[in-house]
Computed example of a mutant assay.
Amino acid sequence: MQRTKLSNAECPIARSLDEVGEWWSMLLMRDALQGLRRFDEFSQSLGIAPNMLTRRLTALVEAGMLERVPYSQRPLRYEYVPTAKGEDFATVLMAFVDWGNRHYATEGESVQVVERQSGKRLQLTFTDPDDGRTVAPAHCTVQPGPAASAAMRARLERIRTR
């Protein structure tokens, strides 16, 4: 069955899922952002079939999340290094850690988001760009942006007035 392409969807969640929504891709980005770079490192970490690993790495390179950088000429071998776009994905993965810990870590947290230097535990918040004040996700919502279509504006208005 052919998967529906979401790259032209207006919703930023749908567009993002089109690029990195496949679970192997998210786990590969997790590993890349934690410092793994080479095919064999990803393979060992994930236990993923080589053909699937090749497809997922290629897709992440094409999506601009990873860059292929040669590390050996004979034989030619590559490392997969997160791009700036890929580095930005760390925020998404840390949000998954926060959410997963709250809802699926019944046995206790095996991973926590902490400040690198102090080791102090952190929680997910958003920051007001004007005054620096933090706002918890529970106090946030979405609204139509300047480029929103009439259909998107209507959809969000229907949801808001429920």
Rank of each mutant, 00 (worst) to 15 (best):
M29K: 14
N8F: 02
R15W: 00
P12V: 14
E79W: 00
A95R: 12
M26C: 12
R37M: 04
F96I: 04
M29L: 15
G35M: 03
S16G: 13
E62I: 08
A14F: 08
V69W: 07
Q34L: 14
A32H: 06
S16W: 02
R30A: 05
M26R: 15
F42A: 09
L53R: 06
L36H: 02
Q44E: 13
D88W: 06
G100A: 08
Y104M: 14
K5L: 01
L36W: 00
D31G: 01
H103I: 12
E62R: 14
Y71G: 00
L36D: 04
E19I: 07
Y71A: 04
L60V: 07
P75M: 03
A90R: 15
G86V: 07
S43D: 00
I13P: 02
T106S: 15
W99D: 12
P50H: 13
S43K: 11
V61G: 06
D31P: 02
E19T: 13
L46S: 09
T91W: 00
D88I: 09
A84Y: 03
M26Q: 15
M94P: 03
E19N: 14
Q44N: 13
N101V: 03
A90H: 07
R37I: 06
E10G: 09
T54P: 02
E62V: 09
I48F: 04
Q44V: 08
L60T: 10
N101I: 00
A32S: 11
W24Q: 09
R74H: 13
L66D: 06
G64L: 09
G86W: 05
L27A: 03
A59T: 11
G35C: 05
N8S: 09
V97L: 09
S72C: 10
L28C: 11
D40K: 12
A49I: 03
S25G: 15
R77S: 12
